[in-house]
Amino acid sequence: MQGTLQLRDVSISAGTQPVLNAINLEVGEGELHLLLGPNGSGKSSLLAGIMGLPPFRVTCGEILFRGERIDGLPTDARARLGIGMAFQRPPSLEGVTVRRFREVLGASSSHMAEAEALDLNSFDDREVNVGFSGGEIKRWEVFKLFLQTPRFLLFDEPESGVDLEHIAGIGGAINRMAHSLDSEGARRSALIITHTGLILDYVDADAGHMMIDGRVVHSGKAGELFAHVQRRGYKLPVG
């Protein structure tokens, strides 16, 4: 079966600075993949390259989403095809309230239960990411994806800096989102960056990829790879 997202020999630069080299990766419909790797290895850059965020651009290779090449498309076109991203460090939007943001996205109010689950139900009059605490930012970024309901979900460290109680909220929300069907009845897929692995208590990941120095150096079963990293650090598993 053809993957929902395919990266074929993809190299990505930040401006003129090469950061990722010859990445091959495939995520199938309904699959959840983990992306592991030390600080600075290029995990966020990979997500940015998939989403098409400046200054990142694909300098070599191709990215396909549901069989269609997207690496030349602007960010909004990729989003409208069904890719969404929870940012690691989103910008703050002064003067733009959560309510207004929802309205412009044309999101229905049927997500209020999710706002409640993420402890964000009193946030309608807050300005997006302005003065949000670290944990609030993470919860908002997950909630934002409920407003968009993309078919392919990119999570950049969704649980970093989140207290244990709220991790349960975030984990549960990601799990619900991942297991809901999109408007065409297709199963959603996700690529999740994590350092802590805490998210694994809430979601069943299929595969994991280890990234070092701008390359995917190993791919395998998610649980096994994370256990290996916990024991041995970011060293190549032998055999």
Binding site: M51, G52, L53, P54, P74, T75, D76, R78, A79, R80, G84, M85, F87, P90, P91, L93, E94, G95, V96, R100, F101, V104, L105, E127, K144, L147, Q148
Partner: peptide, 20 residues
Amino acid sequence: AYLMSTGMDEDAARDLIVQG
């Protein structure tokens, strides 16, 4: 880019930032 990554087109994103 943040706004456009949600599917808003360039004009909608700019309007929202200016209004904000």
